[in-house]
Simulated scan of single mutants.
Amino acid sequence: MHDSPLSASPYEVLGVAAGVSDEELRKAYRRMLRVTHPDTGGDPARFDAVQRAWVLVGTSTARAAYDRGGSARNGAASASHVWTAQPSAPRRDSRPTARSHGHPGGWSRERYLVLMREWVGRGRTLSDPYDPALVRSAPRDIRHLLANALAEEATARQVATLGIGFSVWHDVATTAAGPGLPPKLDHIVLGPTGLFALQSEDWGGEVRIKRGDLIGEALAGERPMNDLAARAKSIARAAKVKFTGLMIVVPDAAAPSSLELLGKSRGAVTALVGQSRLPGVLRDGLPGAARIGGTELFEVRTRLQAAVKFL
């Protein structure tokens, strides 16, 4: 149960309303343990989720902290604070970082705030658009925008550590977008290991691979890799460059493994990557993907700089 606007609340996992008494909550926990226990034919993943939910709300102290939007464990910050756009943390070393351009997660956050205000309604005060109770009560499409903003910001923090040999562009405008999808590519990363198009995603659940694309209960028929390939193609044409890798980046818990190769699209290797594995994959390169070096690297960077427009 990673900390996502799309994650089920502990009350939802236990199958009760948030306002139930402590005794009713305890009974629900015991009931769900029996239902989900692997020894009685239950699902091990659901059994683990029930136990994690109980840690969050199983005592009066933990429950009060969770209901306020935080966690009683290890003095964790409130979800509201974590979901708010955070300033860059001060650097602890002097090593050069990757050249970065654009505003990661900016479009998704801006759209989230607009739709949240519309959903709350005119004339109502919205003191904290990231209040956990408010976020959990909002329609899924609004929560998904916030989840994706957080995912894009997390990816940006990861790729910033790659070093001066890499250049990164965030929230790049594109002429290709699927139904209901923003006309942008989340990230472009260029370095000696290749030219990569990255899409940061959080669907609030696990995804699997089928026939070169992703499937999962939370996807609702979307074709993420197909959409990413279309966006990358439009940018490749405009900049006269060729992507060597296309990657969808998801929270570690959402992927079957930290790196899953899906196949190829127009010569580019396609992959599903867990968030924490991303820097290593970009430094080492995707298996089978072409590398870019020497004057070609400089030429590709120059073309992208001239062609890229930000959303």
Rank of each mutant, 00 (worst) to 15 (best):
Ile235Lys: 01
Lys309Glu: 14
Ile215Cys: 02
Gly285Pro: 04
Pro182Ser: 10
Asp213Glu: 04
Tyr29Leu: 04
Phe298Met: 06
Ser258His: 11
Thr59Glu: 00
Lys309Val: 14
Leu115Trp: 06
Gly263Cys: 11
Glu222His: 11
Arg109Asp: 14
Lys210Leu: 11
Ala253Thr: 11
Asp141Thr: 12
Leu262Gly: 07
Glu153Met: 08
Phe166Thr: 05
Leu261Trp: 03
Arg303His: 09
Gln86Arg: 15
Thr59Asn: 00
Val269Glu: 09
Leu198Glu: 04
Gln275Arg: 15
Ile142His: 03
Ala230Val: 09
Arg122Gln: 14
His103Arg: 14
Ala76Asp: 12
Arg63Asn: 01
Leu246Pro: 00
Gly70His: 01
Ala290Trp: 02
Met1Asp: 04
Gln158Arg: 13
Leu304Val: 10
Pro129Ile: 09
Ala49Trp: 08
Ala77Val: 08
Trp83Ser: 06
Arg30Met: 12
Pro279Met: 01
Ile235Tyr: 00
Thr84Leu: 00
Arg92Gly: 12
Arg124Cys: 07
Ala89Trp: 01
Ala8Ser: 11
Glu152Arg: 05
Val269Cys: 10
Gly221Gln: 03
Ala18Cys: 08
Arg95Phe: 13
Ala307Asp: 07
Gly212Ala: 02
Asp67Gln: 13
Ala254Lys: 00
Leu33Pro: 10
Arg26Lys: 08
Gly105Ala: 10
Arg303Ser: 05
Ala76Glu: 13
Tyr112Asn: 08
Val300Leu: 01
Ser167Leu: 02
Ala147Tyr: 05
Asp128Val: 08
Arg157Ile: 06
Leu190Asn: 03
Asp252Trp: 01
Val55Ser: 05
Leu150Ser: 10
Asp22Met: 11
Arg63Met: 04
Pro179Ser: 08
His101Thr: 12
Arg208Glu: 09
His144Phe: 11
Tyr66Gly: 02
Thr61Pro: 00
Asn226Ala: 15
Pro192His: 13
Ala154Phe: 00
Gly221Asp: 02
Val120Asn: 00
Pro104Tyr: 09
Val249Trp: 03
Leu126Glu: 06
Asn148Phe: 05
Gly163Arg: 02
Leu126Met: 12
Asp93His: 12
Leu304Met: 12
Ala173His: 09
Glu206Thr: 15
Thr175Ser: 15
His170Gln: 13
Leu190Val: 08
Gly163Ser: 06
Pro132Tyr: 11
Phe196Tyr: 13
Val16Gly: 03
Phe166Ser: 05
Leu134Ser: 00
Trp83Lys: 05
Asp22His: 13
Gly263Leu: 12
Arg223Ala: 11
Arg99Gln: 10
Glu24Thr: 13
Arg211Ala: 15
Asp67Asn: 07
Leu282His: 10
Ala236Tyr: 00
Ser167Arg: 10
Pro139Ile: 05
Ala173Pro: 01
Thr97Pro: 01
Leu126Gln: 07
Thr125Gly: 06
Ser137Ile: 12
Gly221Tyr: 01
Ser127Ala: 15
Pro10Tyr: 04
Thr155Glu: 14
Leu278Pro: 07
Ala255Lys: 02
Leu286Asp: 08
Arg157Met: 09
Val50Trp: 08
